[in-house]
Every structure is written in C-alpha cells, then in structure tokens.
Amino acid sequence: MYPFDTQICKLMILPWGYTNEEIIVVPTYDYVVQWWFCQQQTWKFIESSVAKNENLQYLEFTMKLKRHPMFFVLNLILPICVMIILNIFVFLLPPESGERVGYAVTVLLAIAVFLTISSDNLPATSSPRISSISILLFADVCISAFIVLMVILSSRYYHREGEYPVNKFMRGFVNVSRIVRCKVCCCRRKKEKYSEKGNEEEIKWTDVGKEIDIVCGIFITVVIYIVNALYIIDVAV
C-alpha cells in the first residue's frame, strides 16, 4: 500500500558447482547480522531470518523492510486531499464572476500532474494489485472531470435568457430539491414558501442553475468523503 507498504527482500546464496557431499552449508546465525549496517532514510529495517535448504545446500536470507511514509504524506497525499477539497468550493463561486470553469479545470490539471508524479515513483505493474494511491488519484480525476461538466451545465442554465420558459422537468427538479433540503434542515419558513401555490411560475433559469450547484455540491462532498474513507480503510487494513 504505497507509501505505507512493507517489502520482503530475499537473497539466496548457493555454492555453485559443488555437490552435497563436497560442501555443507551451515548458517552461523538464524538472522542477518547488522554489524556494518547503515541506516537508510527511505526504509526501516524490521526483522530478518536465515533458512537452509537441505537438498540443494543453499541459504535464504529474508529481510523485512518498511517504508518511511512521512515524506510522501506531506508531498503527495496531503496536497491531493487539499486540492480535492478545493474542488468543492467551485460551486460557491458566483456564476457572474466567469471564473468557475477556469477554476475547476485548473484543479483538474493539478490533480493530473500529481497522478503523473506518483506514476513515476511506482513500478509499472498491476500484479498482485494496483497501488491504492493510484486508484485514489484516478477517482479524484474522475470527480474533477464530473465537476467541470456540472459547472458548465449549471452556468449554461444560469445565463439562459428569460424568454425561454422553464420546462416541466426543471421545475420539478427545483421544487423537489428545495423541499428535500428544507426537510433536512427543518427550515419552516422556507418550507412554507416553497409549498405555496403558484410557486412553479416564479421559477427562473437562474434558480435552476443555483439548485444544480447546491445538489452537485452536496453530492460531490459525499462522494469525496466516501472515496477518502475507503482509501484510509484500505491502507489501515
């Protein structure tokens, strides 16, 4: 689970060219001695063992190493989490600013850059499984791409001219969204306001755009929470 992975390195020493009758291999210790061992900044030496094969007369040295993850946490994982959180705030930008699409695309490109950086530090293999951080980055890229699409869609509805009437589907979407939100937050005043007769005629395209922003903001927040929680559980387990 990069960068919280633990690796097991094995080294086999075989007296090549000799038979079992000519030479017998006997290990002095049942572990790897560390008399001339120098501490490494990336890996931590956990434990070791030495095993002997009686048939082929060779020794197998096994060393268990654990990666120091703090460098990768500070320079890779935390920036990714910060960027994906910043992605949510695109729905708080006023549509009149005209910077929403540029903001969303910038965050998408930044996450794509981190995906490239992480792929350079990982082996190009899919067996036994792909690294969890690669899956997390791919999920973040998909979420960012979805955010870009929804921002474009909401901006299109928000700036639509008033001469085009709001269709029945969009009216129903706005009414249902308002009622559900009012039930969740227990806002009696707004609930009574949205339940008044003739409220459908007051719905404008700007209201459609605002409701899309609110619904997408809540949905994306839940999805991001679930994705990051699954990553933490996967790493912890």
Rank of each mutant, 00 (worst) to 15 (best):
M1F: 07
P3Q: 08
T6W: 01
T6L: 04
K10H: 06
M12C: 08
L14T: 06
G17L: 01
T19Q: 04
T19R: 06
E22W: 03
I23V: 15
I23F: 08
I24D: 08
V25Q: 14
V25E: 14
V26P: 10
V26Q: 15
Y29R: 12
Y31D: 10
V32R: 02
Q34M: 14
Q34I: 05
W35Q: 14
W35K: 15
C38A: 05
Q39M: 15
Q41M: 11
F45Y: 12
F45P: 00
I46N: 07
I46P: 00
S48T: 07
V50A: 04
V50G: 03
V50K: 02
N55F: 11
L56H: 15
Q57C: 02
Q57W: 06
F61P: 13
F61H: 13
K64Q: 07
K64N: 08
K66R: 13
R67N: 10
R67T: 09
R67Y: 01
P69S: 15
M70D: 08
V73D: 12
N75Y: 09
N75W: 10
I77V: 11
I77S: 03
L78T: 06
L78D: 01
P79A: 08
P79V: 05
V82Y: 03
M83Q: 07
M83R: 10
I85C: 12
V90N: 00
L92C: 10
E96N: 14
S97F: 12
G98P: 09
V101Q: 07
V101I: 12
G102T: 07
G102Y: 00
T106F: 05
L108D: 06
F114P: 09
L115V: 03
I117P: 00
N121P: 07
L122Y: 02
A124C: 09
S126M: 14
S127I: 13
P128S: 08
R129S: 12
R129I: 10
S131R: 11
I135S: 15
L136W: 03
A139P: 06
V141E: 03
A145S: 07
F146V: 02
V148A: 04
L149V: 02
I152G: 01
S154C: 08
E161W: 13
E161Q: 15
G162H: 08
G162Y: 02
G162T: 07
V166Y: 06
N167D: 14
K168G: 14
M170I: 12
M170P: 12
R171N: 13
V174K: 09
V176G: 15
V176S: 13
V180Q: 03
V180A: 11
K183T: 03
K183V: 05
V184H: 06
C186L: 03
C187W: 01
R189K: 13
R189I: 09
R189H: 10
R189Q: 10
K191V: 00
K193Y: 06
E196W: 12
K197E: 11
K197V: 10
N199F: 13
N199A: 10
N199V: 13
E200V: 14
E201Q: 04
E202Q: 09
I203N: 12
K204N: 10
T206E: 14
D207Q: 02
V208W: 01
K210A: 13
E211W: 08
E211T: 11
D213G: 05
V215D: 00
C216T: 11
C216Q: 06
I218M: 05
V223I: 05
I224C: 08
Y225H: 01
A229R: 01
A229T: 03
A229I: 01
L230S: 04
L230D: 01
I233H: 09
V235H: 05
V237Y: 15
